[in-house]
Design a protein around this nucleic acid. Structure first.
Length: 276
DNA sequence: ATTGGTTCCTGCTGGC
DNA sequence: TGCCAGCAGGAACCAA
């Protein structure tokens, strides 16, 4: 499931194939994604040159020479795949919703079986006032994400730290997998209530999050079910999970079994002995 | 106001 | 072997 490292991997792959190219054809097969595609989506993209590809949290931002920006969110099962020597009319796979032809027989295809993903369009100057981005917290790999900042945003709140780290307003881009792994690396219990997070624990958490995200990006993200790079290769970080999906296996560090609990409706994997 | 629960969606899997 | 309930989860929404 695409979290920040997977989205960054996809962004890097798309950047090579798309920046400097002109979108000469847009095919919309389904517009009822997580939120409906803007009505003029095709018209606003057609004929536009792609100037830049950025990422904000789990969003890919495609900058157009018209001054508009396309926001792409992959949701749970979204894929962006580059194909050579093909045409937009021919769907590459089931559940392909959008295809962009960017010249030289190159087609970028967005598929998303579960349709939790979305695309939207906004003028560049309104980008960070966009409702989806406006309330978003700091980029975890940026200087704006540090222990002090984290403690401030957790102050007075009473929820398990696991849930807080999934809240995109606290830090933007983490999902269930990297939160579990970060908490393990930091030795912090997922059940610990946010207001009881000490400075030391906040520092360890911030370091762990940055380290894990950087390593995961280097590994091309994690391929569990859906994630592939735009050129179809898989990521490798799943082989380095210490706790995620490892219920019952022995903790590498203390050899006690990894536990699974449910918090806010989703699985948390952790070592009750190493994480306090 | 904050927080936890529910919902959307489809594909995969585990248990009978 | 085959079927199907249940699970996977990002984030908006709802209710307490």
């Amino acid at each position: 499931m695409p979290e920040l490292p997977e989205v960054e991997t996809v962004r890097r792959g798309l950047e090579k194939a798309m920046v400097g190219r002109r979108i000469n054809q847009v095919m919309v097969r389904r517009s009822d994604l997580r939120r409906p595609l803007p009505e003029n989506f095709s018209d606003m993209l057609s004929g536009r040159k792609i100037t830049q590809l950025d990422r904000r949290a789990k969003y890919i931002l495609i900058h157009l020479d018209s001054g508009n920006v396309v926001l792409v969110h992959l949701g749970m099962s979204g894929r962006m795949v580059i194909e050579q020597g093909t045409q937009v009319e021919v769907p590459a796979r089931k559940h392909e919703h959008i295809a962009l032809s960017v010249g030289n027989g190159t087609v970028v295809r967005f598929s998303d079986p579960r349709r939790f993903g979305l695309m939207d369009l906004t003028p560049k100057e309104k980008l960070f006032n966009h409702p989806l981005l406006k309330l978003m917290g700091p980029e975890p790999l940026g200087a704006g994400f540090n222990a002090l900042n984290l403690l401030t945003s957790l102050k007075g709140r009473k929820m398990p730290i696991k849930s807080a780290l999934l809240d995109q307003r606290v830090v933007a881009g983490l999902g269930n997998i990297y939160v579990c792994e970060s908490l393990f690396m930091a030795g912090v219990s997922p059940r610990r209530i946010t207001q009881n997070i000490s400075v030391l624990r906040a520092e360890r958490l911030v370091s762990a999050i940055k380290l894990i995200l950087r390593d995961a990006i280097k590994a091309g993200g994690s391929t569990l079910r859906d994630h592939v790079t735009p050129t179809g290769e898989m990521g490798y970080f799943q082989y380095r999970f210490k706790v995620y999906g490892r219920e019952g296996e022995l903790c590498e560090s203390c050899k006690k079994p990894v536990k699974r609990i449910v918090q806010a409706g989703r699985s948390t994997f952790f070592c009750a002995s190493c994480q306090r």
